[in-house]
Each structure stands twice: as structure tokens, then as C-alpha cells.
């Protein structure tokens, strides 16, 4: 049981190993705080939708299952979106259309299809908790790295002094691809060392 939880954190990490959910990963990680809020939104949507999918898994006709999952996910995304708009308008603005785009995030549909539609709620929740926490640390790491290189700060706190020439490209779209590309390389390297 513990294994189910741990898998998403490293072994099957959604970003670095499976390369799923690339669109929010690359788009919102311009700063650590944006990465964190997107990660929290994903935790909310993923856990609730896998719980519900697992609860009603025996009543969903297999032909229309994808449509049913999508509607469940879209409902929770609407909730998350309205919540952010009401209580954290500045974050909602920074994340822009990427909050509604969680609907089509492959991680969430992937977990519904591959795991929670076949397992009881308790296991499904453990799995989704692991995957969403894995996604969270990936986003925060990527966001912190890009913010550090691009602005010299992490979570808005100054880390690098004035001597540091800011690499503005790191907070631009091109930097997202470069940082993630090298991070995946580093993770490959760690994996090979461990073997």
C-alpha cells in the first residue's frame, strides 16, 4: 500500500519520468509561488476526481467512460477556478487560462483511466495523493530554479546579490524548455548512478 503512494513521488514521477501535464508545468513555473499555487490546484482536482471516479467506477458504462471522467474533472476545475477568482484574484490572474486548462491535463485523465477506475477509493486516493504531491514538488523545483536564474529570487526573497547578471530568458518561454530539458537529464543521471 505504501508503494502505491511512493510511486508517484519518484519512480513514476509525472513530470520527470512520464512527461505528462507539460502545459501547466512549462507555462506557470515562471516563479516559485506560481508553481506552488498550480500544484495546490492540481492536488485539489486530482484527489477529488479520483475519489469520485473510484466511488462510481461500477456504474459507468465503459463506452462513455472518458466523457464521464472529463465531466467530473471539469466540475472540480470549475470549483477551483471560482475559488481562486473569489479569494486569490491576483494568483488567478497570474495563472490565467492555465487553471481551466487543468481539464485537459493528461495526468488527471490518465490517473482516472489507469488507476482509480480499477481500484477501491482508499487505494485510488493514496495513488492520486502520491502523484499530485510528486507534481507539486516538480512544479516548485522548476519554478524556484527559473525564478532564481531569471530574477535572482526564490518566493520573492532575494537570494543572489547584485553581482548576479539576471538571465531574463529563463522566465521567458524558451527558458522553460531549456530548464526542464536539463532537469530531465539530471534526473536520468541520478537514476543511472543509483543503479
Amino acid at each position: 500500500m505504501k508503494n502505491v503512494f511512493k510511486k508517484g513521488l519518484w519512480e513514476n514521477h509525472p513530470i520527470f519520468k512520464q512527461l505528462l501535464g507539460m502545459c501547466p508545468t512549462l507555462a506557470v513555473t515562471t516563479s516559485a509561488i506560481n508553481g506552488l499555487s498550480m500544484g495546490l490546484a492540481i492536488i485539489f482536482v486530482l484527489n477529488f476526481s479520483s475519489g469520485i471516479v473510484s466511488l462510481i467506477r461500477k456504474f459507468i458504462p465503459p463506452q462513455v467512460r472518458i466523457a464521464v471522467y472529463t465531466i467530473i474533472i471539469a466540475t472540480f476545475v470549475t470549483l477551483a477556478d471560482l475559488f481562486l477568482k473569489a479569494f486569490f484574484p491576483s494568483i488567478s490572474k497570474a495563472l490565467g487560462p492555465y487553471v481551466p486548462l487543468i481539464v485537459v491535463n493528461c495526468i488527471i485523465l490518465g490517473r482516472a483511466e489507469a488507476f482509480s477506475s480499477k481500484n477501491p477509493p482508499k487505494l485510488a486516493l493514496l495513488d492520486s495523493l502520491g502523484v499530485s504531491l510528486g507534481f507539486l514538488w516538480g512544479l516548485v523545483l522548476l519554478g524556484s530554479l527559473r525564478e532564481l536564474l531569471g530574477a535572482g529570487t526564490i518566493f520573492g526573497i532575494k537570494v543572489l546579490g547584485d553581482f548576479f547578471e539576471k538571465w531574463v530568458v529563463m522566465v521567458l518561454p524558451a527558458g522553460a524548455f531549456l530548464v526542464l530539458g536539463f532537469l530531465v537529464g539530471v534526473i536520468n543521471y541520478i537514476e543511472r548512478k543509483r543503479r
Binding site: L19, V169, A174, G175, F177, G181, F182, G185, N188
Partner: peptide
Amino acid sequence: QILKGASITLITAGILAL
């Protein structure tokens, strides 16, 4: 070796974006 696969594809995309 360690950059093979997804990694080099992402870096290529980065250069394309530049």
C-alpha cells in the same frame, strides 16, 4: 548518453523557441 530521449527534445524545443 544522459540527455538522450525527452531531455534533448526539450532542449531542442527551447532553442527553437529562442
